[in-house]
Design a binder for these strands. Structure first.
Lengths: 137, 137
DNA sequence: AAAGATTGACCGCTCAATCTTA
DNA sequence: TAAGATTGAGCGGTCAATCTTT
């Protein structure tokens, strides 16, 4: 996204990209992506299998996306599909032991990353950043 | 990317995403994407055909990505491939009349969007934002 | 008919492997 | 051998169409 590099807009988007790349690298160190972590996190927090549509809603993505994501995660042994006896249209995703393990590792990576971010953030700029984010809302 | 919504890191990434979505929508209104616009912009600025590798370097992406992007843009009539007589390994992309037209429309959209962004940005927070971006560098 | 999931086609990106020309 | 471009496979996202169950 390197249009017109001398623009504050550009600098902001570029910084956000860099941040995301580094976060992605942190997750990659435990063989996850932020997308996969997000799913594992939801399932761990829920403490029970969740319907794919429910997962898609929580991830703010489209249903077909979750279908394919769960395909890949299932192939890698992170989750498994289980049917819902009460509504046979529904398919739920359930954590496997491996998925549970990876979720914990991912959580540690994320916590460390957040800490690093907070440390890099000039303390006196927190308020300004919060105003900015509110203005962009 | 909705992990842990009450985190400053998360808020920043979320805001950047929102910004990008809106920028993308602005480009879409003239049947472009930010990616395609970026290529058109480089070609217009250069004033001559550019090798695909050169375009990939300027877009900070991998060569194969540019091959495929130019495939799609060529199919849509925005650019055309031309050979380089001086180095027969090289393939250059050249703007078509349609590509030139779209680049101008895209530039107008981008300018309007930047203006809108600047207006939404609390003036007293500019300095803080610049420090923040420097710290994240 | 409406909801849940899936499929197929596409955008945009990565990597590894390949083919051609220098 | 190096460099330039392409191909093929995969991730992650969209949309439109489809199939099953409610």
């Amino acid at each position: 996204m390197a249009r017109n590099p001398d623009t504050l807009l550009h600098l902001l988007l570029h910084a956000a990209h860099g941040l995301e790349d580094r976060l992605e690298a942190a997750f990659a160190s435990v063989e996850l992506s932020s997308t996969r972590y997000q799913v594992l996190e939801q399932l761990a927090a829920a403490g029970e299998p969740l319907a794919l549509g429910e997962l898609a809603d929580r991830a703010s993505c489209v249903r077909s996306n979750m279908t394919q994501l769960v395909d890949r995660m299932e192939k890698d042994g992170l989750v498994r599909r289980v049917g819902d006896p009460d509504d046979r249209r529904s398919v739920r995703a359930e954590l496997t032991a491996l998925g549970r393990e990876r979720q914990k590792q991912g959580a540690r990576q994320l916590a460390a990353f957040r800490k690093e971010f907070a440390a890099a953030l000039p303390a006196r700029d927190r308020a300004a950043l919060e105003r900015l984010l509110a203005a962009l809302g």
